[in-house]
Amino acid sequence: MHIAEGFLPREHAVAWTLAAAPFVVHGVRALTREVRANPESTLLLGASGAFTFVLSALKIPSVTGSCSHPTGTGLGAILFRPPIMAVLGTITLLFQALLLAHGGLTTLGANVFSMAVVGPWAGYGTYRLLRRSGVPLMVAVFFGAFVADLSTYCVTSVQLALAFPDPASGLTGALVKFGGIFAVTQVPLAVSEGLLTVLVMRLLRQSSKGELARLGVLPAADATKGAVVR
């Protein structure tokens, strides 16, 4: 769920843009350094961004019987790291606003903060923590994607609650309202996205070991085991 154009009051739109800006600037610096050091990585990063854009357009079967879209932030952060995802996510959200009328420019900062900053960092943090604890790769991938998806929607709930406090119970009531709605719809979706990410990663481990090793997801030694099948 993207916050639609004009949905947030002006002050909130500005505040969330300012909150997201340092992370995006940090990501831009990381990306610029990477591209200047390895000019050919422009194309790989572009391909990664295009993959994130397409991933967010896939329809996944929801537990509730309907369809929804994965955020792709968990998989993106595991594959490309959170600073790069902040930039790729921002460009993806900009494209979605201009090409699909999803989201908007005044709400870009808020959407970037939830989907391109908090989601990737929370998901990647969970993934790294579990991997360091010796948890198997696929379990860590599931929880990374699950946490990334859920944290994205938790932040969106907070953003909406801050913008529209409940007339009777203020921020707490608004959090209950928006959080309750998201809990019903998003917890099953977060489980769905976690499962989908595990399935995608399993297929990638079979077909793209070289790329996964280059991205640091698999140890370099794994890339040489078995033939790469396209």
Binding site: F51, L199, S208
Partner: peptide, 14 residues
């Protein structure tokens, strides 16, 4: 849908 996601990744890098 999992095959679709994985194929998109492979095609993007290709």
């Amino acid at each position: 849908v999992a095959g679709l996601g994985a194929t998109a990744f492979v095609r993007a890098f290709d």
